[in-house]
Amino acid sequence: MKTTQHKIPTARPSGQRPSGAVVKPVGARPVIGGASSDRVIEFRGVTKLYDGGDIGLDHATFGVEQGEFVFLVGHTGSGKSTIMRLLIKEVQASSGVVNVAGHDLAEIKRKKVPYYRRNIGVVWQDFKLLPNRTVYNNVAYALLVTGHSRKQIREKVPDILRLTGLSTKLHNYPDQLSGGEQQRVSIARAFVNHPPLLLCDEPTGNLDPETSIGIMQLLYRINKTGTTVVVATHDHAMVDKMRRRVIELSAGRIIRDEAAGLYSRDESTREFAVRMRGARLGQPEDS
């Protein structure tokens, strides 16, 4: 594998990174002004202790640049979901600073959290669709929440559902869809506002491998529009094939931060899919 590897023994990263894509040396005290302008996510010495003493995250420090595609890997309980929950401000950091797009999340007031969340698309392992709404209305809800007019909704929703390959399922309810289709709905909902950041917590956790590739392909396509995508997963095979930056966690600590490596950024979705399927399948059935 053609990737630069850096073992990070502690939360404090050290050394220079030739690709420049990943972690800059950031101490407990930022040197100048904190986050750089194109840095979407920045964790500085973040620790999260849950009630009852469980360690969610232990002095994690990393940064994600705009337009990056990052994997968070690790076993269950390693802290992947904690990072996700911190990023959508579902939980608060016990110590350290979580910065998103230059905003310190600790300074966002409870009342402002909904407005903050509208800038982030989130995809969950269990889809979290509204069970008593159709596919169309599930996606439309994300727009209604942000105060879009019905006219805008009529324009945007069919567009995004076409992008995610759900044009024929508009009026189905979630329980009439397969897992892969439900996940596509949830991605459509997450991306319909075109958020600068898309978080995916085990997006393929409940799906079979072939369906998973379809979902990863979709995420890849979204990433190509310039959206920063962070995917938490424990599917190592998938991660290896994707050849993107990997942050590995164990027991709340970052134990590996592996840069994207020397792959062509302009790989087309089709090429991507072929590679993902290990080129065994010949022509992929969709692109």
Binding site: P114, Y115, L130, V145
Partner: peptide, 16 residues
Amino acid sequence: RREIEVMKLVGATDSF
């Protein structure tokens, strides 16, 4: 309650 949780996570305000 799940429905309400999802609404919140999608960015709906409390009053909405």
